[in-house]
Write a protein that binds this DNA or RNA. Structure first.
Length: 616
DNA sequence: ATGGGTCCT
DNA sequence: AGGACCC
């Protein structure tokens, strides 16, 4: 390995921002790979081995949206008194995410709770984020909102890809060409760094240039078709972000390019609450210096395999053949090798695919040490199984289905010694009677089988999940909005205590801050009633927000809950006009267009959004 | 590491 | 059933 290239790689994605053009030039001249061409840096970036695909003339426009520090934002919405304060969201002993006020104080994602409290002893507010219910709820609302811009693919709870190609076509056909790109535009002068050493795929714009030239750049009269298309895409992204903010109170960052890979990468450059566009012609330069870890599907293991054949950056990868990659990295999977290879040029042929209802529903908890069948059964019966059944009841209401398979996954101390992420799982038919006693017994039976004769064991993780769903019509005629008792009999009567805390769970000292000692449910009730309640059985979603129930009803039929859809539109009309006036002219027009379309849709006269849905 | 998920083998 | 990957 030559010294200069190595030194560059160490620096480039750790602390210092690196200007793309200079970095690419340096890499091209010092890469372990011999590149052909005598001309300037640009020629040297093209090993000329692989044909360029047609993506550069593609008409695709893909928007990637990322809800900023999502859990922390939701906590602020649930408890507005948190606004302006540094907020951290915890799971077990970790601050899994925090708001930007907390980041200013030096708190980072995945920081130890103790360390966070040391950094910010007086003002930091911590909230437990172990119950994902409110996050799922807001995530679904965000997804439903984004549907009107095009097909939506979710990635986790806080990220979405939206294929806005059809909407862009519609706008261009109507003669709409914005005069400016909205937000930032990546150019050859853009400098890029990694957000953290640990996540080279989280790119940020370097602060070194200090130029604002890339902000709201004009769309010239001689603009190419791609420029015009992406400019429209940037306007759509701005509208989508504006609506997430206005209708749901959620701030988001966005990336706008011709494919998923690039949109996600550039979307991270300017955060929070901002957006970035990039033309495909700049993708070569942009991706050249990126570590292969930035490619979707390249995790820690694949990264190591790449390193073993001297591939660190996308530029290194370009100079390898698909056959080499297939042999040394992807275990003979040539399609995957080809995909990685294309990605190294910033070409991502994968489409935006709406994922539909979840394929699994699972709950898990981790423990310092959970010993013996009796204690395990207690955790199952009082916590995990009731939680799973609650989730399944909601799932059944939304999708008219029930699970066929029950899976138990666990980890013991012994397994941990070998590989610290190793888990063992076992499955059986999901019990016909979906109640706590039956399901708990089935879980325990699976655990006994998995643990063999082991009488003594120390479990550190326990997960129970439902999968392989089958159509199932809940009994009709019941006035209950939820599934009938015939199928989910014996609604679990819980004693309401999360007894796991009384066992041998990891228990951290949260100090004397009383807010840290409240569960999320208690905090919520405290906010509304002023009383600290016993933990409740059901965790309702906030009712003040527009319902998206209609989104989950089968397509084709008339909306089964027309009231819900109307409510959503009313909120849309309720955008604060004072705020709207503050916004750029284009944005104002966007809003009026969108709202006008919705109004027309309600009046049955069509409109672009209506038309868009009608085609599906 | 957490509490989830997806897809592939 | 387990692995690799994603958030």
């Amino acid at each position: 390995m030559d010294g200069v290239g190595e030194d560059y790689r160490r620096r480039a994605f750790a602390e210092e921002p690196v200007e793309l053009r200079r970095a690419a030039n340096e890499l091209a001249t010092t890469s372990t790979t011999t590149l052909q061409g005598e001309a300037g840096w640009c020629d040297r970036l093209y090993p000329l081995q692989e044909p360029r695909t047609k993506q550069d003339v593609s008409k695709a426009v893909v928007v990637h949206l990322d809800l900023d520090c999502f859990y922390a934002q939701v906590e602020e919405l649930l408890d507005p008194s948190l606004k302006g304060k540094p907020v951290g969201v915890t799971q077990k002993y970790l601050v899994v995410t925090c708001n930007y006020e907390a980041r200013k104080a030096g708190i980072t994602k995945l920081m130890n709770v103790k360390e966070a409290m040391r950094k910010c002893p007086s003002s930091l507010v911590l909230r437990s984020g172990e119950d994902l219910t409110p996050y799922r709820s807001y995530s679904r609302k965000a997804e439903a909102l984004l549907q009107k811009f095009g097909p939506v693919e979710r990635l986790g709870l806080d990220e979405f890809f939206v294929d806005v190609q059809a909407l862009v076509d519609e706008r261009l056909a109507a003669g709409e060409v914005p005069q400016h790109f909205r937000g930032h535009l990546v150019g050859s002068g853009t400098s890029v760094r990694a957000d953290t050493r640990f996540r080279p795929q989280d790119l940020r714009s370097g602060a070194s240039s200090g130029t604002l030239l890339d902000l709201n750049p004009p769309v010239g009269a001689e603009a190419t078709e791609e420029e015009r298309r992406l400019a429209v895409g940037s306007v759509i992204a701005a509208t989508a972000r504006g609506e997430l903010q206005q209708l749901l109170g959620l701030r988001a960052s966005a990336g706008i390019t011709v494919n998923k890979l690039l949109s996600k990468l550039v979307g991270g450059l300017h955060k929070p609450d901002d957006q970035t566009t990039m033309l495909f012609k700049d993708a070569d330069l942009f991706t050249a210096t990126l570590p292969v870890r930035c490619i979707k599907g390249v995790g820690a293991l694949t990264e190591q395999k790449f390193k073993s054949i001297g591939v660190h950056t996308c530029l290194d990868l370009r100079a390898k053949t698909v056959a080499e990659i297939s042999k040394s990295v992807t275990k003979g999977n040539q399609e995957l090798a080809k995909f990685f290879h294309l990605c190294s040029w910033g070409i991502d042929p994968s489409r935006v695919v709406p994922k539909g209802p979840p394929k699994t529903v699972s709950v898990e908890d981790s423990f310092k040490s959970l010993e013996g069948y009796e204690a395990t059964m207690k955790v199952l019966k009082s916590v995990l199984v009731p939680d799973l059944l609650t989730r399944l009841r909601e799932d059944c209401d939304q999708h008219q289905r029930r699970p066929v398979t029950l899976t138990v996954t666990y980890r013991t101390m012994r397994m941990r010694e070998k590989k610290h992420f190793a888990r063992k799982s076992l499955s059986c038919a999901f019990p016909r009677a979906m109640d706590t006693p039956e399901v708990s017994e089935a879980c325990l039976a699976l655990l006994r089988k998995g643990l063999g004769g082991e009488a003594v064991f120390a479990m550190t993780l326990l997960n129970i999940g439902a999968s392989r769903f089958t159509d199932f019509k809940p009994e009709t005629g019941s006035r209950r909005p939820t599934t009938s008792v015939a199928t989910f009999k014996a609604f679990d009567v819980r004693d309401g205590r999360r007894i796991a805390d009384g066992l041998t769970m990891k228990r951290r000292n949260y100090g004397k801050n009383p807010s840290l000692l409240l569960s999320k449910q208690q905090t919520r009730t405290l906010a509304s009633t002023g009383e600290i309640p016993e933990p409740a059985e059901s965790r309702a979603t906030p009712s003040s927000l527009p319902s998206i129930q209609s989104h989950f009803r089968s397509p084709g039929g008339r909306p089964s809950q027309p009231a819900a859809g109307r409510r959503s539109a009313e909120v849309g009309l309720g955008i604060d006009m004072e705020i709207l006036k503050e916004m750029p002219e284009d944005v104002q027009r966007e809003y009026r267009n969108a709202l006008g379309s919705r109004k027309r849709a309600r009046e049955g006269q069509g409109g672009s959004i209506r038309t868009f849905f009608a085609k599906k």
